[in-house]
């Protein structure tokens, strides 16, 4: 197996809740654990078919984790159906991983928490680290025995909507954090190369701090230590004593940072604004900051 940089073990990184992360080694040791379901969720929805962690099921974020008609996350009943059809019961430990250092795996994590699934973790380093370490891949779809699943009503304390953000822009009662690249934040580009969801205007929501999502990861895709993460956020004025709203372009990079702030650093009030810049940047008359 290929050697990668030596990461500090998860339990030694000082996280507020280290139980939300597992290592690639842990996953490799639980491939046949009947209480564990591994799920791959990628930005590039064809990645799963090119090889995946043995036994993992693949979720397509654009068709299975989004309402196909209304712009929204999937409703409660559809979520319960997806979980059950994926062989997930209410007591199953769900291990999520994906490409781009877990962008959409974190988005799926956020949805699982919205609907009250207790045992859900991210594989630290995601698909990239699994490949880099030369671990086993499978081309075979997972054999899944459907389970019965009951979803809770959505916990909307984890989600910010447009009126919430509009109120914060006026009151400055919460920290707004933009996880996009500096080029998107300044309006130099409307969306990253090759990604189709865009908007009419470039720039950012007034008062937002720009902390690109990738700052929280090491070169091998694993998360930095709690001390390093605190320095990044608190250095930009995003402190645990104030509510935080994260946003990006469509809500996936911001769910990655939401995960860091809420679980790795233990901030008490963190919401993900999944409408993000593709909502705000298309609004007629919305205030925009652009240097």
């Amino acid at each position: 197996m290929a050697q990668t940089q030596t990461a500090i073990p998860i339990e030694q990184r000082g996280y507020a809740d280290p139980r939300v992360l597992v290592s690639t080694e842990w996953v490799a040791g639980h491939l046949n654990d009947p209480n564990v379901r591994i799920v791959e969720v990628d930005v590039d929805t064809t990645s799963y078919d090119q090889g995946h962690v043995p036994g993992a099921v693949g979720w397509n974020w654009s068709t299975q984790l989004c309402d196909p008609v209304v712009r929204d996350i999937i409703p409660q009943a559809q979520f319960a159906r997806l979980m059950g059809e994926s062989g997930i019961g209410n007591d199953t430990t769900v291990v999520l991983y994906g490409d781009n250092n877990n962008w959409f795996a974190a988005w799926a994590f956020w949805q699982l928490k919205i609907y009250g699934h207790e045992n859900v973790v991210l594989m630290d380093g995601g698909r990239k680290k699994w490949l880099e370490e030369g671990r086993e891949l499978s081309m075979e779809p997972a054999a899944v025995a459907p389970r019965s699943y009951t979803a809770n009503p959505p916990d909307l304390s984890l989600r910010a909507f447009l009126p919430d953000v509009q109120a914060v822009v006026t009151s400055r009662s919460a920290s707004l954090v933009d996880m996009r690249s500096p080029q998107e934040f300044t309006g130099e580009i409307l969306s990253p190369p090759g990604l189709p969801e865009t908007c009419q205007r470039g720039g950012h929501i007034p008062g937002a701090a720009n902390i690109p999502w990738g700052k929280v990861c090491n070169e091998d895709g694993t998360f930095k230590t709690a001390d390093e993460l605190r320095a990044i956020y608190e250095g930009a004025g995003v402190t645990p004593d104030r509510p935080v709203i994260t946003y990006c372009r469509i809500g996936e990079r911001s769910s990655h940072s939401w995960f860091v702030l809420k679980y790795l650093l233990g901030y008490g009030d963190v919401r993900n604004y999944d409408g993000s810049w593709t909502e705000w940047g298309n609004l007629v008359g919305a205030p925009v900051e652009k240097p």
């Binding site: 781009n100 990239k128 490949l131 500096p182 190369p193 999502w213």
Partner: peptide, 24 residues
């Protein structure tokens, strides 16, 4: 980034600033 599996090579290109893969 490139690697091999099962006798085939796979390559992808990502934007470093954005951190997103956009060609494969």
């Amino acid at each position: 980034t490139s690697y091999a599996t099962g006798g085939r090579y796979h390559a992808s290109v990502e934007s470093v600033d954005v951190g997103a893969r956009f060609a494969r």
